[in-house]
Design a protein around this nucleic acid. Structure first.
Lengths: 109, 109
DNA sequence: GTATTAATACTATAATGTAGTATTTTAAAT
DNA sequence: ATTTAAAATACTACATTATAGTATTAATAC
């Protein structure tokens, strides 16, 4: 297996955590993806992915304080680690490189 | 599930087929990935992925003619379909969009 | 304490990623 | 014509990632 394995949905989640910097937890991340990617995200799918990303060291998390809002479990806030950023850069780099190897004639449909 | 599902390795393979336009079959595709992505690709992994991509309609294939080289089964040549190109564009677009939503402060490590 | 709410945790299954081994097809060697 | 070796694809099995439904927890209002 590869060194920095990063699946497609994992990448989307990682990018969205970065996008919601300072306020990235389950709900905001979910909304960010849905708003920008034109797709529905189930809370279950998101949660397992967040866990995996943290386990891999691409994300860190901390538990937030209780708010004055009505009820609710405390939020778990996420941030992208330097290692996670590195993985993001790497996959992006790799694809850019590949795109550049494609001749113009390849897509003359 | 999403409309145009395309995994990470599938994307790499699809891009590599486009890159080897006119000469894309098992061996050349494998070599192209290894040369550009700094990773090893097993022939088995590649083959299952090619099959899946064809099944999804992202690739077409045709059997090549016998060559004058020493032995060997006939090659199966692949080309990216318009539908496959669309999937490639779509995932790239989506990620670009997401990158743009990330504030500069997000990666101040 | 009980109800209500916001959020995360758990569990299960489908899709994708990965690789080892087997088989087929072809032409060269004899 | 038969055997042999090479080049390639096909098959099979298992690991990881994707997805979503349901359960549980923790906090506040009453």
């Amino acid at each position: 297996m590869r060194d920095l394995q990063l699946g497609g949905f994992e990448e989307i989640v990682l990018l969205s955590v970065a996008a919601r910097f300072g306020d990235a937890y389950g709900v905001t991340i979910k909304l960010h993806i849905e708003a920008n990617c034109d797709r529905k995200v189930s809370i279950g799918a998101l949660r397992t992915t967040l866990n995996r990303l943290e386990k891999k060291g691409f994300l860190d998390s901390r538990l937030g304080e209780a708010t004055s809002m009505r009820g609710g479990k405390r939020k778990r806030f996420y941030v992208v680690t330097p290692f996670g950023k590195k993985a993001l850069d790497q996959v992006m780099e790799e694809r850019k490189k590949l795109w550049q190897t494609i001749p113009k004639t390849a897509f003359n449909f």
